[in-house]
Simulated scan of single mutants.
Amino acid sequence: MLLKSSGIPAMPSIFDDFFRDWSLSNYSDTNTTLPAVNIKENENEFTVEVAVPGMSKDDFKINLNNNVLTISSEKTVENEENNDKYTRKEYSYQSFERSFNLPKNIVESDQISAAYKNGELKITIPKKEEAKPTPPKLIEIQ
Rank of each mutant, 00 (worst) to 15 (best):
M1H: 10
M1R: 09
L2G: 13
K4C: 07
S5V: 02
S5T: 10
S6I: 09
G7C: 00
P9N: 07
P9D: 08
A10E: 14
P12T: 05
P12C: 03
I14G: 03
D16R: 06
D17T: 11
D17L: 13
F19S: 04
R20I: 14
R20F: 13
D21F: 06
W22I: 09
L24K: 13
S25V: 11
S28N: 13
T30F: 02
T30S: 08
N31W: 08
T32L: 11
T33M: 14
N38G: 13
E41R: 12
E41C: 09
E43A: 13
N44D: 14
N44T: 13
E45H: 01
E45Y: 01
F46W: 00
T47W: 02
E49W: 03
V52Y: 00
V52A: 14
G54H: 06
G54D: 06
S56W: 06
D59W: 00
D59Y: 02
K61A: 10
K61Q: 12
I62V: 15
N63C: 07
N63S: 14
L64I: 15
L64K: 07
N66H: 08
N67M: 06
N67A: 10
V68R: 08
V68T: 09
L69A: 04
L69E: 05
L69R: 07
L69N: 05
T70G: 04
I71L: 04
S72K: 04
S72G: 07
S72Y: 01
S73E: 10
V77W: 09
N82D: 15
T87M: 02
T87C: 01
R88W: 10
R88H: 12
K89H: 02
E90R: 13
Y91D: 14
S92R: 11
S92I: 11
S92V: 08
F96W: 00
F96Q: 00
F96L: 02
R98S: 13
S99M: 06
P103T: 03
N105D: 15
I106Y: 09
V107T: 14
V107C: 08
S109F: 09
D110M: 04
I112W: 03
A114N: 12
A114I: 00
A115M: 11
A115V: 13
G119P: 05
E120H: 10
K122R: 14
I123V: 04
T124S: 13
I125W: 04
P126M: 02
P126C: 01
P126K: 00
K127D: 01
K128L: 15
K128T: 09
E129D: 14
A131C: 01
K132M: 15
K132I: 04
P133Q: 04
P133E: 08
P135K: 11
P135H: 07
K137F: 01
L138G: 08
